[in-house]
């Protein structure tokens, strides 16, 4: 198996995550796209580990860190979305204009 075949899948996932990030209006959908991008990064880390085979499995350890931080990010992100939804009855980012100058 080539390294590149996994890197290309990761690049596709990352590009689609960017597309979703730019095109979505619903905040929960934007968080879903961010998850896609983080997932693409994980594929890259694991692929490089499978290519270089470091003695300490550094790539896999880093992908575990990414998974942990992503879980924390989702928790905080959804808490913020819930609070804003309670105050403004909307989950669309283009309607969050309270801090607009």
């Amino acid at each position: 198996m080539l390294v590149n075949q996994f890197l290309i899948v990761a690049a596709l996932l990352f590009a689609m995550g960017t597309y979703g990030l730019l095109v979505r209006r619903n905040t929960v959908m934007i968080l879903l796209s961010v998850e896609l991008m983080l997932n693409a990064v994980n594929i890259n880390l694991v692929a490089f580990e499978a290519y270089l085979r470091t003695s300490e499995a550094i790539g896999q350890v880093f992908s575990l860190f990414v998974i942990t931080i992503a879980a924390a990010e989702v928790g905080i992100g959804l808490a913020i979305v819930l609070m804003i939804f309670r105050n403004r009855q909307s989950a669309n980012v283009d309607e969050y204009n309270l801090m607009k100058f």
Partner: peptide, 16 residues
């Protein structure tokens, strides 16, 4: 991304 990884890794195989 695809161009850079194709340039960098060519037909390198996964080890083990």
């Amino acid at each position: 991304l695809a161009y850079t990884s194709l340039q960098a890794f060519g037909s390198d195989q996964l080890t083990d």
